[in-house]
Design a protein around this nucleic acid. Structure first.
Lengths: 372, 372
DNA sequence: AACCGATACGCAACCGGTTTCATGTCGATT
DNA sequence: AATCGACATGAAACCGGTTGCGTATCGGTT
């Protein structure tokens, strides 16, 4: 109490807790962490002391001592802003729990050399692993650069991940199939489809799911109106225009993501079509855009935040196991998706003029699929 | 080289650099930081060693030793997703530079007790300061709770901050005035205005700016069509409908943010009005939504990322000065805004059938305002 | 030439936990 | 009853950088 010099910065330390609990700092540490090999009575004493002193461990000291101080890189491009914020929130929460720093790096460009450049900047920052949300998860230059630098990475939301890689995703095929069945159940037979950007495998998977469900219902896939989109709102406008310009326009449009679905709604409105009475429009991802527009979009939910958390956990496990030279099991984690039915989908117009329950018998066999 | 035990985790340390440079660790530290009192030749030697070894300081050790390990809280509500992601990116970058952790906490509710609860959870997490992006920057329960806990905070994007508080914002009044002048310059005389949520002072400031510019041009503010909005897309739809339902509808709509402007564009389209030929629509904030919709929105740019960085810096300065019990100067930082003219604004229909330059002489005096 | 303050730089302790390893205890085995 | 291993716990070194303070060096005075 005489000359606290620079110690006693006001924070309570393990030492304080140890003193109060009548044990050593070591034991406190054991209780706070795993908690193995500590007698129950001792544990309680320590816990009581912790509560009494309102102790919370200093994360800097912890990472320093444990050698955990990991920097995780997050290379982001410009996916829909809604997607990114969701993703960041999840990643940040997980990073804090794991006690590691998140290092962001933007990579808006699509030019291979610039992508490589952005990636290289990570190698020099002593980043120990990188998270790749879409669409960068499939950017070849990025992956090549990471491979060369020997930095592990985890890709998020790929449609069809290559073997021997870390992945977190949903089942795009099943998600798209479930959505298609939903539209079929409502009675739709001419369903227009807007594909996603071909530079992402999820686009192909979603289309495959759509096609499979159609086939399942005995509809010739070749007859289905399909237009190419690129996941952007703008591309959705063009695709939707083309779809509705057809001689025999669809009664429902299934866009490969919410941005394009929102665009389709806009196009429909501009043409005087009411959604969902005159045209059903459904999306994919359930970003905040889906509930922003009017009417709210029926869509397939992707647990974006959770996926980010999962991705970080996977990557961290990989890094730690690599350190202790364990055999790292390469994982491909598939999370549950969910069909979210909102206001933008309804039975097609001709089906049943009756107010309620119209069109229910459209496709009896495949009722309520994909919902758990 | 015999028994590295747990040392030599592969990272290069100050010691390594010191050895190579032929100095002590102390000197290396001095060079890396401020760099005071180091001879030029020595500094170069150290720098060379750093480059050669590709040394990068361990941030955990640094914060531990310097006692800087600061946890900064970020309490977010659901502003437009586009806003949040921009904000997070800026905050994260600044946090990393400053070597402090960002602790996120969601607070979606508008109920005072739940807001207070969310805030309290920070007090127990030993968060040393809190960043409050809108709309929480003005939430009374949050501020009261923070005040009670003695935790400093900085509010972002308030319209009219109270005295004695930390703030980062733009000049909403001037921004709105500049935008209004832009519309006046184009020749518009009946400009509809959609107000923002009254629970944020920026709403009032933006309206004031609008009114001032109108008055400046000799237009009676009372005659201007004004509708109440709440910053949400949904509220923008309602307000725009009302505006266009008027007997004497406006030739331009100035919405208090981009979300509502996007909604207004949608409404216009649904009514068969072309933007900007039949109706100009402009927004505020320049979130990514502004460039997502078609046509792209003329808007007032708010440097969101920079504001987040600035907010963190301000807060950190406050905390550090508080520690060393300096007199903390309370700051209210006003950043530059910028008028961004895109495709959604044009001269009103009747103005000039001529192809180019139509309506330019509408309001000669106030040409090109707000642009620097 | 002796003196002096300023400037350059190093030594050792320290930040707050964690790992390593040694020690003490106790019930179960032979 | 002596032995042994699993369990519980503590002492000391350590993680990598920084602060406090002491020493050496240098240029300029008188």
């Amino acid at each position: 109490m005489s000359k606290p010099s620079r110690r006693s910065r006001g924070t309570v330390t393990v030492q304080d807790v140890a003193r109060v609990a009548g044990v050593s700092a070591m034991t406190v540490s054991r209780v706070v962490n795993g908690g193995t090999n500590v007698r129950e009575t001792t544990r309680e004493a320590v816990l009581a002391a912790i509560a009494q002193l309102n102790y919370s461990p200093n994360s800097a000291a912890r990472s320093l001592a444990a050698g955990d101080a990991t920097q995780i890189g997050l290379l982001y491009s410009n996916p829909s802003a809604a997607y990114l914020s969701q993703f960041l929130i999840g990643a940040l929460a997980a990073a804090r729990r794991a006690g590691c720093h998140l290092v962001l790096e933007a990579c808006e460009s699509e030019r291979p050399d610039e992508q490589a450049e952005a990636t290289r900047s990570f190698a020099s920052t002593s980043v120990e692993g990188v998270i790749l949300p879409p669409p960068l998860s499939e950017a070849a230059p990025v992956r090549a650069e990471l491979e060369a630098a020997g930095i592990p990475w985890v890709s998020v939301a790929m449609g069809l991940p290559p073997a021997r890689s870390l992945n977190v995703r949903i089942d795009d095929f099943e998600g798209a199939a479930a959505m298609t069945r939903h539209l079929l159940d409502l009675g739709h037979r001419r369903i227009g489809f807007i594909r996603g950007n071909p530079n992402q495998t999820s686009s192909a998977e979603r289309y495959r799911g759509f096609a499979a469900a159609l086939e399942e219902a005995g509809i010739d896939v070749k007859s289905a109106p399909v237009e190419q989109g690129y996941f952007t709102f703008r591309s959705g406008i063009v695709a939707a225009e083309r779809l509705l310009d057809r001689a025999d326009p669809p009664t429902a449009i299934f866009a490969s993501n919410d941005d394009m679905a929102a665009a389709a709604v806009g196009v429909a409105h501009r043409r005087g079509l009411h959604v969902p009475q005159d045209l059903s429009v459904v999306g994919f991802d359930d970003t905040s855009l889906a509930t922003t527009v009017w009417p709210e979009l029926t869509t397939v939910r992707q647990p974006i935040s959770t996926m980010a958390e999962e991705a970080l956990a996977l990557l961290l496990a990989r890094i730690r196991s690599h350190r202790s030279s364990e055999t790292d099991k390469l994982e491909d984690q598939v999370l549950d998706h969910e069909l979210i039915v909102r206001e933008s989908s309804a039975p097609p117009k001709g089906t049943a003029p009756a107010r309620a329950g119209g069109g229910r018998r459209g496709a009896g066999a495949t009722s309520n699929p994909g919902l758990r």
